[in-house]
Every structure is written in C-alpha cells, then in structure tokens.
Amino acid sequence: MIDPIHQFHLNKIFTIGHIGNQEIAFTNSTAYMLLAVVLIAGMMLAAGRALVPGRFQSVVELSYEFVANTLRTSAGSHGMTFFPLVFSLFMFIFVSNIVGIIPYTFTVSSHIIVTFSLALLVFLTVIIYGFYKNGLKFFKLFVPSGIPAVILPLVVVIEIISFFSRPISHSVRLFANMLAGHVTLKVFASFVTMLGALGFVGKVGALLPLGLTVALTGLELMVAFLQAYVFTILTCIYLNDAIHPGH
C-alpha cells in the first residue's frame, strides 16, 4: 500500500540558519511557498496594460475585481484599506492549493501551522486594528444587544470564546479540507495502481477508481478555489468586525 501521508512530508533541502537551538531549514514547503509567490508576482507583473485585455490580462483583472468585490461587499468601502492583505491571502492560498493538485507536488496549505499562521495574522490584524480604530468600543463586539442582563455575562464569555475560536476554525477548515482531499485522492489513485498490477481483470476493475480519481481531481480543483474563497470571505467578515464592531 502506498502511504497516503507521504505527500505531506517535509524534506529539508538546506539549512538557512538557527534561531536559538532551532534549526531553520529551507524545505520543500519553502520552495512551494516561493513558487506561489513567484507565480503570483510573475502573473500580475507580466500582465499587459491593454485597454481591451487579452486572455491572460483578463484572468489577472478578474482576480483583482473578484477579491475587491468580495471585500467591498463584506467590509464596506472602508475595508479596502486591507485590500493588499486580503488579495495576498487569497492568491497565496489559491495558487498553492492549485499547485498542490498537480501530482508529485507539495501542498503548502495542508500543514496546520501554515494555515494557522495565516489565520493568526488575520486575527491579530483584526484585534490591533480594531483597538486602534475603535479604542474601547471594540469590546462592544462581545456584547450583543437585546440580551437580558441576567445572562449577559454568560453570553459575553461565550462570545469571547467564540471570538478566540475564530483563528482555529479559520485555519482548521482550510487545513482539513486540503489534507482530506489529498489523502482521498492518493488513496483512490493507489487503488488504480494496485488493481492494475493484478492482471487483466484487475486492469478492468481499476477503471472505477480511475474514474473516481479523475472526478475527485475535478472536485479538488473546486475545493482549492472554494477554500481559498471561504478563507478570504471569512477574513473580510472578521475585518468588518474590526472596522464596525457595533453591529
């Protein structure tokens, strides 16, 4: 049986340096992160400036407009302050998810620490900007209106826990989707090779998992986009809380 977990292994390519006792290595993950950055930057900077865009330029402009509209509808025009951040997040996750579907590649977002760091970045941005912008009024976020005074403390505590659970659910959702999708793909793909090794009957039987693998790849393409989008729209909603906590 082919190990479906193998694809998530980090391989050290060389050592960058040390922080304390901890070795900081340049791994395959680092390489794929760099690849995502290079792809995004290359795509955006290579796109033409034509008044009537070609296909390539259209894709770039479409992604720009897509993220801009998502942010504007969720967080208002004031939210456009965070456009570079949200755009970077969306493109980074989306491109690394898509790259990860290509066989033999590594999926950056299948590691919880990566998604959690990104979610934490959003979370800290919300808290810092929320206090910077609204001062103590930011605490209104935890006090829903129209709640009887008796159970208000309980609700506030629950709201606070709910607030702190955001980066976790935010990151676990992306991580779990990518992980589960890639494991499933790998398992079905390994069925194909296993059955294929069993002679003619096995080869015919292998058609079913092969078809499923193809279908799953299509599904995973959709999930790659969808999860990047979900991560982005949740980022927008959380940023909206930082901008308008009174709602």
Partner: peptide, 17 residues
C-alpha cells in the same frame, strides 16, 4: 466540505474553551 467546516467550528469552540 460542509461537514468539515461545521465540525471545525465546533472543535475550535471546544478547544478554545
């Protein structure tokens, strides 16, 4: 996807608590 989303919400809440 939906199941993972909802379960991650619940797990996150419990975990933070």
């Amino acid at each position: 996807a939906r199941g993972l989303r909802l379960s991650s919400e619940l797990i996150a809440g419990v975990l933070v608590g």
